[in-house]
Each structure stands twice: as structure tokens, then as C-alpha cells.
Design a protein around this nucleic acid. Structure first.
Length: 151
DNA sequence: GCCAACGTTGGC
DNA sequence: GCCAACGTTGGC
């Protein structure tokens, strides 16, 4: 069964426009265990992913992507020059994973966090209740309603 | 830039 | 294994 997700990204670092230009990209740099476990254990090829811009002027859901690979070792954990370097990760025991997503769509009408927070329909979203988690589940009904409003 | 929320670390 | 200290996230 296809599941629905929301990935946060800071547009200054990597935006929906960057993903569109590259067509697909590896979602690396996740350094939170719960987010990692979801990437590794719960996500399946074909799952749909809302892309959300955080830490910017207008935080909002801005586009749609699709999971196109299984989880795999995130090489940035081994690179001392990377901001995502983890000295405790080894080739034998890697800690962090990434997966690939492909751009699907950039929304005509991004749905802002402000609107999401104001609407009781979205009250149970992790975006509202667990703001800091970077890989979030999205219930099918919320996902469909977001798509409907953004297009 | 502030600060609340919350995840991680490490001493005990 | 508890919990205080500390670091990070991210909205405002």
C-alpha cells in the first residue's frame, strides 16, 4: 500500500526548484533516529512525498515527489568535510541512511503552515503537533486534501 | 535574533 | 537508567 509522507527542507540549502532541475536526488543528511528509522523501515518505492519548505519567509508545502529507491547508506556520514559527518559511524556499522526521490510536481498554490495550523482539518498532522521532525507521516485524507488545495 | 520544544550526551 | 546540561530545529 502506498503511504504518504512529508519531507522538510530549507529552501536556501535545497528547494523544490533544485529537485525539479535535477529531476531526482538523494535525500541525505538525515541525522535524527526516528526520521532514519522511517526512511529505513517504513518507506517503500512508489510512496508519495510532500515537499515542505522550512526556516524561510513563508513555510509551506510546495510540491510533490515520489520515492524511487530503497534506503541505502548515506556516504556523507564518512566524509570529514561534510556538515553531516559522524565520527562514530563506520563502514562496518553505518548509522545513517538516505533514499532517492524524484520530482513530480511543483504546486501552483503552496499551502502555508499558517493555513494548515488554522484549519482544524489538519490538527492531527505531525506538522502541527511535532513541528521539529523532518520526516513525517501524512494521513491519506490530509494528503488528498492538501493536493486538492494546492493544485 | 529570540526562545520554546525536544532530542542527545554523559556523569553518576 | 536517571536526569541535568547542552545542542539543534524552526516558527516568529
Amino acid at each position: 500500500m502506498t503511504q504518504h509522507w512529508l519531507f522538510k527542507t530549507e529552501p536556501d540549502a535545497y528547494s523544490i526548484d533544485d529537485l525539479k532541475r535535477e529531476k531526482r536526488g538523494s535525500w541525505d543528511g538525515i541525522r535524527n533516529y526516528q526520521a532514519r528509522n522511517r526512511l529505513r523501515d517504513d518507506m517503500k518505492i512508489g510512496d508519495l512525498v510532500l515537499i515542505y519548505h522550512s526556516s524561510c519567509a513563508v513555510p509551506a508545502v510546495v510540491g510533490l515527489a515520489k520515492v524511487v529507491s530503497a534506503a541505502k547508506v548515506d556516504p556523507s556520514q564518512f566524509q570529514p568535510s561534510s556538515p553531516f559527518f559522524d565520527a562514530k559511524a563506520t563502514a562496518d556499522k553505518p548509522r545513517w541512511v538516505m533514499l532517492d526521490i524524484a520530482w513530480q510536481e511543483t504546486f501552483a498554490k503552496p499551502l502555508t503552515l499558517k493555513v494548515i495550523k488554522q484549519d482544524p482539518f489538519f490538527a492531527d498532522m505531525e506538522l502541527v503537533s511535532r513541528g521539529r521532525l523532518s520526516i513525517q507521516y501524512v494521513a491519506a485524507e490530509c494528503f488528498n486534501e492538501i493536493l486538492r488545495r494546492c493544485r
